Simulated scan of single mutants.
Amino acid sequence: MSKTNGTVDPAELQRIVDSHDFLSWLGLAVETAERGSVELTMADDDRFRNPFPGDQGPIHGGITATLVDTASGFVLRTTFDDPLEATLTTTDLDVSYLEPATGNVRIEAEVVRAGGTMGVADVTVSSAHDEGGERTIAVGRATYRLFRDA
């Protein structure tokens, strides 16, 4: 994977998204990626919304949880010598929902710690709102088992 001054080529992580049926269906875009930090975006789409009668509901919480999990995995990949070949798996996922997501979404993930076998990442999910601007709609933390010797 290409790295320059701690920067990871977002296009290389984007290839992971594009080759994965579910992540590509979500339309995730890798905006930035560097060692210990990634930013993803997801465009608003009616397919992701809760079915509220007579009204357009908010984005389903399962989508938000997926975004926290995915961003955590991507940011922890940046701590490997070869992020594209990294082997890791979620061991714990916590999501706190603060407000409904009602528009385009931005996901920012930061590594809290990445050791030899375990990694922890914090994630903030923000969404555009009808009143304008962007608000934090969820925060999350994921713990991953890192297989550095795989």
Rank of each mutant, 00 (worst) to 15 (best):
S2Q: 01
K3P: 00
K3N: 03
N5L: 04
N5E: 13
G6Q: 07
G6T: 03
G6S: 07
T7R: 10
D9R: 02
L13V: 00
D18W: 00
S19W: 00
H20G: 00
D21K: 07
D21S: 08
F22K: 02
L23E: 02
W25R: 05
L26R: 03
A29T: 12
V30E: 01
V30K: 01
T32M: 04
A33S: 09
G36S: 13
G36T: 09
S37R: 15
V38C: 03
T41H: 03
T41G: 07
M42P: 06
M42L: 15
D44H: 15
R49S: 08
R49K: 15
P51G: 04
F52N: 03
F52T: 13
P53W: 05
D55C: 03
G57Y: 05
H60R: 09
G61F: 08
G61C: 11
A65Y: 10
D69M: 08
F74C: 04
L76A: 04
L76I: 06
L76Y: 08
L76D: 05
D81P: 05
D81T: 11
L84H: 01
E85Y: 00
T87F: 03
T87K: 12
L88I: 01
T89H: 00
T89S: 12
T91P: 02
T91W: 02
D92L: 07
D92F: 01
D94L: 11
D94N: 15
L98M: 10
E99M: 08
E99P: 00
P100A: 05
A101H: 07
T102N: 04
T102E: 12
R106S: 13
I107T: 13
I107K: 06
E108Y: 09
A109S: 12
A109V: 09
V111E: 14
V111I: 13
V112R: 14
R113E: 15
R113G: 09
G115D: 06
G115L: 08
M118W: 01
M118I: 15
G119Y: 09
V120R: 08
A121V: 10
A121F: 11
V123I: 15
V123D: 12
T124Y: 04
S126A: 13
S127N: 06
H129Q: 15
H129D: 02
E131R: 11
E131P: 00
E134H: 02
R135Q: 08
I137E: 02
A138K: 10
R141F: 11
R141D: 10
R141L: 11
A142C: 14
R145H: 09
R145Q: 13
F147P: 00
F147Y: 05
R148I: 04
A150S: 11
